[in-house]
């Protein structure tokens, strides 16, 4: 099982995403934004960071990268694709997921261990959760406010495309507390929190039992393995 992690200029969490892939039991394949080559991977991760310094709009310039031609083709053919934080912004700018992401409503960068509720478990990246499960995933961003017009929001809600919703506190003013989305087919998932930072005891978010012991993020990557095997 090979999961590709794409590095764009300004990606920060590509190495962490590769490590998370390996911890889930898959081979991590480093992919480069300027190539037209997915190197035969079974699934794709677009990692967090600040590609092109968030110039123009967060994710907008990376969405025009050469490799995105192949990413869009693979996503259209059903390959599991996960966009984390900046990767979510890239997926939105590439029109693979609906809506837009703007500056947090309070205007500041935020980093916290974020409680989120899993709303849709019929996706390639969430099939290891149960509906309504509350998990803890670190969040760290400046442009995490999810917005969309009324019609789009109605469609997102009506078609069950909300993958995750913020619980307890909405950290950025996202409409409908939306933390992450999926597509109709369920192979594409994008979210602002960082599951790759919650995959290893000692380096994850705090839990009630122990400091830094949260590993809810590992389930994302294990879910993708299951989805690829089932396909």
């Amino acid at each position: 099982m090979r999961i590709g992690v794409i590095t764009f200029p300004g990606s920060l969490d590509d190495r962490d995403a590769q490590r998370a892939v390996r911890r889930a039991g898959a081979e991590a394949v480093a992919l480069w934004h300027a190539d037209h080559d997915l190197r035969g991977v079974d699934a794709l991760v677009l990692p967090g960071g600040f590609s092109y310094g968030d110039y123009l709009r967060a994710g907008a310039i990376a969405a025009m990268a050469p490799i995105m031609t192949e990413v869009v083709q693979a996503a259209d053919s059903g390959m599991p694709v996960l966009g984390i934080c900046n990767g979510f912004q890239v997926l939105v700018e590439a029109h693979l997921l609906p809506g837009g992401l703007i500056r947090n409503d309070h205007g500041s960068f935020i980093r916290r261990d974020q409680h989120i509720v899993v709303e849709n478990v019929d996706t390639a990246w969430t099939n290891g959760f149960v509906t309504g499960q509350e998990i803890v995933i670190p969040i760290k961003n400046a442009d995490g406010g999810f917005i969309a017009d009324e019609e789009t929001l109605k469609r997102i809600e009506g078609e069950g495309l909300v993958a995750f919703r913020y619980a307890g506190l909405n950290p950025n003013g996202s409409f409908h507390d939306i933390a992450g989305l999926t597509n109709e087919r369920g192979n594409i998932v994008g979210l602002m929190p960082h599951p790759e930072h919650a995959t290893e005891p000692g380096f994850g978010p705090d839990t009630d039992e122990r400091m830094r012991s949260g590993v809810d993020g590992l389930v994302f990557f294990e879910s993708a393995l299951r989805a690829v095997l089932a396909a």
């Binding site: 703007i102 500056r103 409503d105 205007g107 917005i147 003013g173």
Partner: peptide, 14 residues
């Protein structure tokens, strides 16, 4: 310009 009906956090901060 940001859409009139949507939040403009930067404008609000200014």
């Amino acid at each position: 310009m940001p859409k009139a009906e949507l939040l403009d956090p930067q404008g609000k901060a200014i």
